[in-house]
């Protein structure tokens, strides 16, 4: 049920038009950060105000919305944003990646491959990949205009000089369609390859920094690297402790104060789906019969 008294999806129509114009420019200039007049939202900066504004501007009554926070559908940020749109737009929501038409994400790309019928909306804290190398906006803007990304290569090189390898593990810079260097938001670099040639449209919203950018479907997204230090994603020694999935991004969970820990899928929907299919990880317990017989278990 949607709240009365608010326009559909909270934002007024004038604000949506402004955001929509920015989105269209972002799509036409892949990887370029379009300035927009970000509004104050009923949640603090850092809680996804950019992503929320992008979602509100594209959302229609027929859309099915999924919101994830670090891959999880049931952490605070994801739950509150999902509720926000349930109340202000009355749209259907889901936790199933395959059911969603719009997926708003804080820092993960779902493990399930996305389709042409989906839009992925990223919440971005710092959209400017060069910001920590050059604090002046006038300068970073000029560097983008000149496609002068030497600074970024120096930064990656310094990683190698200091650590022997490129030590950047998240917000790993990418080049979009051979032109703009872009911050993929603080997703683990594990997700970078999923951005390349992705069938879904990817939109990025930075509320505090007031920028919107986009990667159209089927666009070349290359992680920056060197010939002798090629880009590589994280690998994990063991599979998910709950669903036994290999080749997925795992979260480390501390179990006790004696060094006990487990590694589980960061993507909760992927993990639940696999367990539903009968995959069992090494640490997956079995629910007591009293619970499963009650018929209310989620397995």
């Amino acid at each position: 049920m949607s709240e009365t008294g608010y326009n559909f999806a909270y934002l007024d129509e004038g604000t949506k038009r402004m955001i929509r114009r920015a989105i269209l420019k972002g799509i036409a200039i892949p990887g370029y950060q379009v300035p927009f007049a970000s509004r104050e939202m009923p949640m603090p900066y850092g809680w996804g105000t950019g992503g929320v504004q992008v979602t509100a501007a594209i959302l229609g009554a027929d859309d099915v919305l999924k919101v994830i926070d670090q891959g999880s559908d049931d952490t605070t940020n994801a739950v509150s944003i999902r509720k926000f749109f349930e109340r202000t737009a009355g749209v259907e929501t889901t936790t199933a990646t395959t059911q969603a038409t719009i997926i708003q994400t804080r820092h993960r790309i779902p493990e399930t491959p996305l389709t042409e019928d989906q839009v992925l909306v990223f919440q971005v804290p710092i959209p400017e990949p060069l910001r920590f190398l050059e604090p002046r906006e006038t300068e970073t803007r000029r560097l983008h205009a000149l496609a002068d990304y030497g600074l970024m290569h120096v930064k990656l090189y310094e990683d190698i000089a200091r650590h022997g390898h490129i030590a950047t593990t998240y917000a790993y810079p990418v080049e979009v369609d051979g032109r703009y260097v872009m911050d993929p938001s603080p997703t683990p670099k594990f997700d970078n390859p999923k951005m390349d040639d992705c069938p879904a449209l990817q939109l990025f919203g930075a509320g505090r920094e007031k920028r919107i950018y986009a990667v159209p479907p089927y666009t070349k997204v290359t992680s920056l690297d060197f010939e002798d230090h090629p880009f590589a994603v994280q690998t994990f020694k063991q599979p998910c402790a709950l669903c036994d999935a290999h080749d997925v991004y795992l979260d480390e969970i501390v179990l006790d104060d004696r060094g006990g820990r487990m590694f589980v899928c960061s993507d909760t929907d992927h993990c639940e789906t696999r367990r539903g299919e009968g995959h069992r990880g090494a640490m997956l317990g079995t629910a007591p019969e009293a619970i499963t017989a009650g018929g209310n278990s989620r397995v």
């Binding site: 559909f8 129509e13 949506k16 038009r17 929509r20 989105i23 269209l24 799509i27 036409a28 501007a57 594209i58 959302l59 229609g60 009554a61 042409e116 449209l201 986009a214 159209p216 479907p217």
Partner: peptide, 14 residues
């Protein structure tokens, strides 16, 4: 307005 925008967005994205 949302419907027209989504059609335009899809047209520009593809």
């Amino acid at each position: 307005a949302q419907k027209v925008f989504r059609v335009l967005m899809d047209a520009l994205a593809r």
